[in-house]
Every structure is written in structure tokens, then in C-alpha cells.
């Protein structure tokens, strides 16, 4: 504790900081939500049992033309390299690169923003907690407000938190260019050719498809419960009803598994899905993949040499 730099600040700066944080947080949420709301207006009654991830799969961009196998290896490799960096500055560069990928892939921004929004709660918790709880090392800079000795704001903690948040955002932004620029069946076929067992690939496809069926089913059951007067409260009764609800969902899905499997066999399923995809490797695929990996390695070197 003794060797850390302590900077005493008057109390009003603390309150100004809190107000600034709350304000900007609220503003960011509001902007995100208004963007998302605009995007959703034209479809009031959507069928929830229809999958959504690859709606942009037919687009025309470098990412859509890229061989799936190269895309998977390059972008996943890049993601791991990003995660290996340490400073917030490298994370910031990674965010820029990932955001450039989203723009280049000509994807609707809404879905990427929704991913960030889904993480925002966890990440803002992180940003708030880390500076207050990070261990104090010699050489750290502590901000102490208005003589509250017990309440110190560790700048190194803030730096750590910023790096984590930045890396998480960068990887989340990469997901859309990685997954939404080819149909899921094609992506899975690419994974299979990279060595993932075929059975597991099929399981992913099946699980993906039936998630939407069961979402629709759960939605229908929930509407039925509401019509019968069920209201969710903090009570044992609610939990009992929830337990029955889950039980019913499992019973229905279990029975469905048998029907699905019987139907698959009736259509001649013998452990394989027909895969009408042909992969053709071009020089561009290699170049594009090496570009991302070189960017990733460059970022890591930049990070480790302490330039950031």
C-alpha cells in the first residue's frame, strides 16, 4: 500500500464521475435500443420457429466469397490472438479491426449491436468492480476521494477491466462476419472438413433447428399459462409451476426426438446428411486468411513489446 501513488481528489469529482458514468451508460443503452427498435418495426408477427442467424448469408462481400474453412481458421485464430493481448490499447485496435470486418461484410449493424447490448450488463459490472477491488501493487496509482481512505479507485484495475471489456467486444463483433456470411449448413460442412466429427456437426444443425421449434413451443405454453391466469411472482407456487412447465417442455421434446428420428429414418437417414456444397480454394482465400492472421500476430507483438 505504502509504495502506491495516492492522488487525493475532492469529493465533487467523485460525484461528477458517478453522474457522468450513469449518464453515458443510460445514453448508450438508449441509443442501442432505439436503433434496434427501428430495425424491428416492419415485422409485428414473426414466426419464432424460423431460424435467423444466416439471414444475411446471400450477401455479396469479401466475407461471403471467402472459403468457409479459411474463414473459420483465420477468424478463430485472430480471436485467440486478440484474447492473448493484455493492454487496453491493443483491445481498442482489435475493436477497430473487428468493426471494419462488420462493415466490409456489409452486415446489418443491428445484430452486432444486439450482441454488444447482451454483454453490456456483465461488462459494466466488470468496469465498476475491477477498479475498486483490484489488488494494490507498488507503483499503482490510486485515486482517493475527499479523504475516504477505505474507498480507493485503482487505475491499474480500470486498465485491466478496459482491456477485458475491449477484447470481449472485439470477439463479439467478429462473430457476425464469421457466422452470418454463409448459411449455417455450409459453415458446419466447413467445420466437418476441418476435422470436427460429422455426427457432431449434424447435432449442431439439429439442435439449432429445434431450438427455434421449442422457442415457439415454450412461447405457446407461456401464453396458455397467462390465459389461465398465471402470473410470475416471487413465490413457491411460481417455482412449482415453473418446474411443471420445464417438465412438460422436456416431455414434449423427448417425444419429439423419437418422431424426428423416425422421420429422418423414413427419409433414408443413414448417419449422413447430404451436403451439396463444393469448396474451391482460390489464392484470394489464402491471402485473406493470412491477412487476418498477420494482423493478429502483429497485434500481439505490438502488445507484448509494450508499445501500447
Amino acid at each position: 500500500m505504502s509504495e502506491a501513488h495516492i492522488i487525493q481528489l475532492p469529493l465533487f469529482i467523485f460525484w461528477a464521475g458517478v453522474a457522468l458514468l450513469a449518464g453515458s451508460w443510460w445514453l448508450a443503452l438508449w441509443t442501442f435500443k432505439s436503433i434496434l427498435r427501428d430495425e424491428h418495426k416492419p415485422q409485428p408477427q414473426r414466426d419464432w420457429s424460423v431460424p435467423t442467424v444466416d439471414t444475411a448469408a446471400d450477401g455479396d462481400s469479401p466475407f461471403h466469397h471467402w472459403d468457409v474453412r479459411f474463414k473459420l481458421v483465420a477468424l478463430l485464430g485472430f480471436a485467440f490472438l486478440v484474447v492473448a493481448t493484455r493492454s487496453p490499447w491493443s483491445a481498442l485496435i482489435a475493436i477497430f479491426l473487428a468493426f471494419a470486418a462488420v462493415l466490409l461484410a456489409r452486415l446489418p449493424l443491428g445484430r452486432s449491436l444486439r450482441r454488444l447490448l447482451a454483454m453490456s450488463g456483465f461488462l459494466s459490472m466488470f468496469l465498476l468492480v475491477m477498479p475498486l477491488t483490484a489488488a494494490v501493487h507498488p507503483g499503482d496509482t490510486l485515486l482517493v476521494f475527499g479523504g475516504w481512505d477505505w474507498f480507493s479507485f485503482n487505475l491499474r484495475g480500470l486498465q485491466l477491466a478496459l482491456a477485458v471489456v475491449g477484447k470481449a467486444c472485439a470477439v463479439a463483433l467478429l462473430m457476425e462476419p464469421l457466422l452470418a456470411t454463409a448459411s449455417l449448413a455450409r459453415t458446419i460442412e466447413g467445420l466437418t472438413r476441418l476435422g470436427v466429427p460429422e455426427k457432431v456437426g449434424q447435432m449442431i444443425l439439429l439442435a439449432y433447428r429445434y431450438t427455434f421449434v421449442f422457442l415457439e413451443e415454450a412461447h405457446r405454453m407461456a401464453v396458455g399459462m397467462q390465459v389461465r391466469g398465471f402470473r410470475r411472482r416471487t413465490s413457491l407456487e411460481t417455482l412449482r409451476v415453473m418446474g411443471n412447465f420445464l417438465g412438460m417442455l422436456f416431455v414434449r421434446s423427448f417425444e419429439r426426438t423419437h418422431r424426428v428420428y423416425a422421420a429422418m429414418q423414413a427419409r433414408g437417414y443413414q448417419g449422413r446428411f447430404p451436403a451439396p456444397f463444393c469448396f474451391k480454394v482460390t489464392v484470394g482465400d489464402w491471402l485473406h486468411a493470412s491477412l487476418w492472421l498477420v494482423l493478429g500476430v502483429g497485434l500481439l507483438i505490438f502488445d507484448r513489446l509494450g508499445l501500447g
Binding site: K199, Y208, F214, M242, F245, L249, F254, R256, T257, V260
Partner: peptide, 17 residues
């Protein structure tokens, strides 16, 4: 395996509740 896959989606939906 296909049946486990279909149950996976049921659990996934359950975890969203």
C-alpha cells in the same frame, strides 16, 4: 446422437426462462 441434439435445444430454451 440426433435425439440428444433435439433435447439440447429443449435445455437451451429452458435456460432462457
Amino acid at each position: 446422437l440426433p435425439k440428444v441434439a433435439v433435447m439440447t435445444s429443449a435445455f437451451f430454451v429452458a435456460s432462457l426462462i
